[in-house]
Design a protein around this nucleic acid. Structure first.
Length: 683
DNA sequence: ACCTTGTGAATTTTT
DNA sequence: TTCACAAGGT
């Protein structure tokens, strides 16, 4: 078994690096700790935290102080908490949770900032109305006020027509908006105009309410991904913005934070938003000024920065005078993989395995076309002896492909093409593919609950309390329970559609109160008929639809419910992260932080609208990196990092299948992977 | 030949 | 939401 013998020499050097971190903590010298993929970054961070507990714990407790440790995700928070064990001295949380915790008490100050923000937004929109070409017709209006008044009065009518085709929409609008045809020549311009008018109106109302002391509190609501400023609710980005403003403006707040938290550690700093680094820099400067001790430690890897919002390699600019500590040892991969990922990142971190037996595994780069995918995967399933205990992880670029290969292509596509998701296309992947149930959309969540219920009642091994909630179960006699189980067992139907029809039939036939209560808890409808259910789906997925389209849209809903149950089941497993197939599919991005023994990456020239020739031009440009700058360099770096993250997941075996012609950039590939071969099925 | 308008498709991820 | 493109108008 390879990767089992640790070399004593490297372990000693690893310890030495850890000592450097401890020394920086002792001397309150702010650091940035850089280490590549699989180096044990989080381990080093946790060791740092443990050192603080051990060496400074008494002092911290005495002064009623604690340590802040912030992460980018909830998953990372839990990982660190687990590694750290139970301690009150260290506050581990996501950035957003911590910042809100620090500032939420300062509502007076927040309110001021909020008022400014509302005014800024109004200004910004008014400015757009004054300058943008699309609004020329509006600017030409002689009586803007009466138009605004009319459209505000007809808000409901407006929204009722919003999903109609352009010509239809125009007719509907003209019923209440007469003599304004000049605005309606271009319907999309009109919609954009009206949206802006509504926003201004909302914001002005909000300002008025603040003035009247009706609204007093600013709220951060993590469940929503965008601000609802007029409802006094801010989302993730604006939280960071407000936090920066409040820390920047009020020295007293800076001091309170500093006095309470003399140590701040940041996990995966490269993903952190610029505003957060600016906040920390303000704190560091102020601590110098008032001579209070503060230690800030950034832990991360610039080469793994794959999101544009992250600070990436701009850290040293935003927060100067950090001491650099880097670690070049790797605890994850075989030498062949290390060799490749070192060539990808090609910077001062050239990783070396801590193992003396890392000469195993294999790496290879092939090109072919889409028709080769299946046989490519089949070949390595055999060659690597893939089974339940030795899975193959396949990385693809888009969620659409993840859905396809995970066998729920139709389900995904049908949900995606509903009016609701057409209009909220940004929410598609969160609401349909999130592994956190609370993040699923209303309908995906409902479908999930139905599948969950169906799975449980059809599996005789499921404990009864898994599908009968406690408050129903506890009042049941043994006989009642038996009766209920018999009824539930009689629910049948293979598809979701048939299953539901059966449920409603039983609901309305048996008058068993407890049984109906179970169904009520499951579906949470106003009324328990199949028709009501469909109507509920309709209002959620196709809001604002016209009477004429009702029948065809109902058909779409039925079609969705009749999608092969195996697809629902696959989706259900995907959401639950049940990997019961030998081959598991992920997006490149989604594998961050993970490691797999066997990895196949499917790659191609393009990735998305702005990513034409993303990968091909990476391999081309790699030969003349020195001459890149500006946006071109940024794009190059982003691709490099994505390639680095995906290749560095592999522990043992790594293969890439490139799905486009590679002849124009063969040399770039060879420089990293050694060889490129056309894929042919082995005889 | 150029401009306007309407339509439909689109990348990943976290809070 | 944003953008490319086709269709249709000038």
């Amino acid at each position: 078994m390879s990767l089992s013998q640790v070399s004593a020499n490297t372990i000693a050097k690893e310890k030495q690096i850890q000592q450097e971190i401890f020394k920086a903590i002792d001397e309150c010298q702010n650091i940035v700790f850089n280490a590549g993929a699989g180096a044990g970054k989080t381990y080093a961070l946790i060791e740092g935290l443990k050192y603080i507990i051990q060496e400074k714990g008494g002092n911290l407790t005495f002064h009623n102080q604690n340590v802040i440790c912030i992460t980018y995700t909830n998953i990372a928070t839990n990982k660190i908490k687990e590694g750290l064990g139970n301690t009150k001295l260290i506050k581990v949380s996501t950035i957003h949770e911590r910042l809100w915790d620090l500032i939420k008490a300062y509502q007076k100050q927040l309110l001021k900032i909020h008022i400014d923000k509302l005014k800024e937004e109004i200004n910004e929109i008014e400015n757009q109305l004054k300058t943008e070409v699309n609004f020329q017709a509006y600017r030409d209006l002689t009586d803007k006020e009466s138009f605004i008044k009319l459209i505000l009065e007809n808000k409901d009518n407006y929204y009722k027509s919003i999903d109609r085709s352009a010509a239809d929409f125009r007719t509907k609008i003209q019923t209440f908006l007469v003599n304004h045809d000049s605005l309606l020549t271009n319907v999309s311009y009109f919609k954009s105009l009206v949206g802006k008018i509504f926003s201004i109106n909302n914001y002005k109302n909000c300002l008025e309410r603040i003035e009247n002391e009706e609204y007093k509190l600013v709220i951060y609501d993590a469940r929503y991904n965008s601000d609802r400023l007029h409802k006094m609710m801010i989302s993730h980005d604006t939280l960071l913005e407000y936090a920066y403003k409040i820390v920047d403006k009020y020295d007293l707040i800076k001091q309170v934070v500093l006095d309470k938290h003399p140590y701040i550690l940041i996990d995966e700093y490269q993903d952190t938003d610029e505003k957060v680094i600016k906040i920390l820099n303000l704190l560091a400067d102020y601590s110098d000024q008032i001579k209070h001790k503060l230690f800030i430690g950034y832990f991360g890897d610039t080469a793994q920065s794959i999101y544009e919002t992250g600070v990436g390699n701009r850290l040293s600019v935003l927060h100067p005078d950090l001491t650099n500590i880097s670690k070049k040892y790797n605890r994850r991969s075989v030498n062949k993989v290390l060799n490749v990922i070192n060539k990808i990142r090609k910077d001062n971190i050239e990783q070396e395995s801590i193992y003396s037996d890392a000469d195993a595994g294999s790496v290879g780069f092939y090109y072919g076309n889409k028709d080769n995918i299946d046989s490519f995967i089949e070949q390595y399933k055999t060659e690597w002896n893939i089974n339940q205990d030795n899975k193959l992880h396949c990385l693809v670029l888009t969620n659409e492909l993840v859905a396809k290969y995970n066998q729920f292509e139709n389900l995904y596509r049908q949900l995606k093409t509903t009016n609701y998701y057409r209009n909220n296309w940004k929410s598609i992947n969160t609401e349909i593919l999130s592994h956190e149930l609370s993040k699923l959309g209303t309908i995906p969540n409902l479908l999930y609950r139905i599948i969950d219920f169906k799975t449980k009642i059809t599996n005789p091994k499921t404990p009864i309390t898994d599908f009968i909630s406690q408050n129903i179960y506890r009042d049941l006699t043994f006989d009642q329970l038996k009766k209920i189980l018999a009824i539930l067992e009689s629910i049948n139907g293979d598809s979701i559609n048939d299953f539901l029809e059966s449920i409603f039939k039983i609901y309305n036939k048996t008058k068993d109160e407890s049984c109906n209560k179970i169904i009520k808890e499951l579906l949470e409808l106003d009324d328990y008929t199949f028709d009501t259910f469909i109507s509920h789906m309709l209002t959620q997925l196709f809001p604002n639809i016209e009477e004429n389209d009702m029948e065809s849209t109902r058909k779409k809903i039925i079609e969705l419910l009749k999608v092969d149950y195996s697809e629902y089941s696959s989706w259900f497993n995907f959401i639950n992260k049940v990997e019961n197939q030998d081959v598991v599919y992920h997006t490149y991005h989604g594998t961050k932080g993970e490691e797999y023994r066997n990895v196949i990456i499917l790659m191609q020239n393009d990735f998305g609208r702005q990513g034409q020739n993303k990968f091909s031009s990476f391999f081309t440009k790699r030969t003349y990196i020195g001459s890149l700058n500006g946006e071109e360099l940024e794009k190059f770096t982003n691709t490099k990092n994505l390639l680095y993250v995906s290749c560095s997941r592999a522990i043992h075996n790594l293969r890439i299948l490139y799905l486009d012609d590679v002849s124009c950039f063969k040399e770039g590939i060879k420089a990293i992977f050694g060889e490129v071969e056309k894929f042919d099925v082995r005889q």
